[in-house]
Computed example of a mutant assay.
Amino acid sequence: MANWVPLWLHKLGSPPIFYRFAGVVRPWALALAILAALAALYGGLVLAPADYQQGDAYRIIFIHVPSAWMSLFIYGAMAVAAFVGLVWRIKIAEVVAMESAPIGAAFTFITLVTGSLWGKPMWGTWWTWDARLTSELVLLFLYLGVIGLYHSFEDRRQGARAASFLALIGIVNVPIVHFSVNWWNTLHQGSTVRILGPSHIEMSMLWPLLTMMLATKLYYIASLFARVRADLIATESGKDWVRAIALAENGDRP
């Protein structure tokens, strides 16, 4: 068993094997993500009661909170993949890191927009230089920095390595975002959902929130695998396995 796991991971690092693996997993992940998102939206927007203080305005949390979680989760995954790519020079790890950045940036942008939409009726302003909001904005700039640095090099692998260093440097901001409400006096409310210990939220509100969290993670997998497959086809276009795929797909064409 101890020898099998590294061998399996080593094989998965092969572009043609990962391409086929991602092609099998992606449609299942996307289908499950859609089903989970629909269930979460129905539970959060229809079944869950209105909040006794915020009324129906609180329902934006079913988009805002899972997006905020994903903005941090994806950055962590990107940093791990960047580290693996830098240390062991595994091409798939570099591709995973770089293709994670646009998805993470999208979730971070959604977090900031939905937070502003919630903040206007709750705080009376669209934006304030609150510790949580400011550190989340810095997270978006880090994502954009990784994307920009990656695409500033003609050699994609060289660009990926440079951007990977930036991703690793920026990982210090992730705990700042997460713990900002505890470290500073902030307008942003503290955590109500806890993995360890009881959550301070009604079960009728909690299960749609957790279901949406599952949906966003499944969507990340589906989106990431689609982006990685497209990247591999572009960068490996001269390889025999890519030509074999092209011939197989066009084999019945005149």
Rank of each mutant, 00 (worst) to 15 (best):
I147V: 15
I147E: 14
I147D: 14
I147F: 13
I147Y: 14
G148Y: 15
G148I: 15
G148P: 14
G148K: 11
L149Q: 08
L149G: 08
Y150A: 11
Y150C: 08
Y150L: 00
H151F: 15
H151W: 14
H151I: 09
H151E: 15
H151K: 14
H151L: 13
S152C: 11
S152H: 14
S152N: 12
F153Y: 15
F153G: 12
F153K: 10
E154P: 10
E154I: 01
D155V: 04
D155L: 05
D155T: 10
D155E: 09
R156N: 02
R156D: 09
R156G: 06
R156P: 06
R157E: 14
R157I: 03
R157K: 12
Q158V: 08
Q158L: 13
Q158F: 09
G159N: 01
G159P: 09
A160K: 08
A160E: 12
R161N: 04
R161M: 04
R161D: 02
A162G: 10
A163N: 03
A163K: 04
A163E: 04
A163I: 02
A163M: 07
S164E: 07
S164R: 09
S164F: 07
S164M: 00
S164D: 00
S164V: 04
S164Y: 03
F165E: 02
F165Q: 03
F165M: 07
L166Q: 09
L166M: 09
A167S: 11
A167K: 09
A167P: 08
I169N: 02
I169Q: 07
I169L: 15
I169P: 04
G170C: 05
G170P: 05
G170W: 01
G170V: 11
I171R: 02
V172S: 06
N173F: 08
N173D: 15
V174A: 09
V174G: 00
V174M: 07
V174L: 06
V174P: 02
V174F: 04
P175Y: 06
P175S: 02
P175E: 00
I176C: 05
I176G: 09
I176H: 03
I176K: 00
V177G: 13
V177W: 06
V177Y: 05
H178C: 00
H178F: 13
H178E: 07
H178N: 10
H178K: 14
F179M: 08
S180L: 06
S180A: 13
S180T: 10
